[in-house]
């Protein structure tokens, strides 16, 4: 079994996104487990800055050679920043999924859907069971 990183300060969704909360800003990316499953990531499609995403809606698409996967957000809000570096260096999602590999930052009014997410321990268990 691979040893996936799962930083303690993040929340995890069953569809393998992580969420970092700083005030009313939520940063979203995909987990170490997810990047490992996808293997070499070659492209990330992101929304436009200023777009409004709804809770449960799509953030974008992440593509490897063998698969393409949708990325979702459990919280709705306005996109205030996207990681445009991913256009040139999509591989940073593989090498640093929680750092340089982040996808977008959302300004969120209602943070409550985050309460339904897993913490690091629960997420490790969830990944190991798959």
């Amino acid at each position: 079994m691979a040893n996936w990183k799962t930083p303690e300060d993040l929340k995890y969704a069953k569809s393998d996104e992580w969420f970092r909360v700083e005030g009313d800003v939520v940063t979203i990316g995909i987990s170490d487990y997810a990047q490992d499953q996808l293997s070499d990531i070659v492209y990330v499609e992101l929304p436009d800055v200023g777009a409004t995403l709804s809770a449960g809606g799509s953030v974008g698409v992440v593509e490897s050679v063998k698969a393409a996967s949708d990325v979702y957000t459990v919280v709705g809000g306005e996109v205030i920043e996207v990681n445009s570096q991913l256009e040139k260096e999509p591989e940073s999602v593989n090498s640093d999924p929680f750092g340089k590999g982040w996808f977008i930052k959302l300004r969120v009014k209602d943070l409550s859907p985050l309460n339904g997410l897993m913490n690091a321990a629960a997420y490790i268990e969830y990944c190991s069971s798959r």
């Binding site: 490897s64 063998k66 698969a67 393409a68």
Partner: peptide, 12 residues
């Protein structure tokens, strides 16, 4: 650019 195709992406 294969992942965009039907055999991988299916209904998407």
């Amino acid at each position: 650019l294969r992942p965009r195709e039907q055999d991988i992406r299916r209904e998407k």
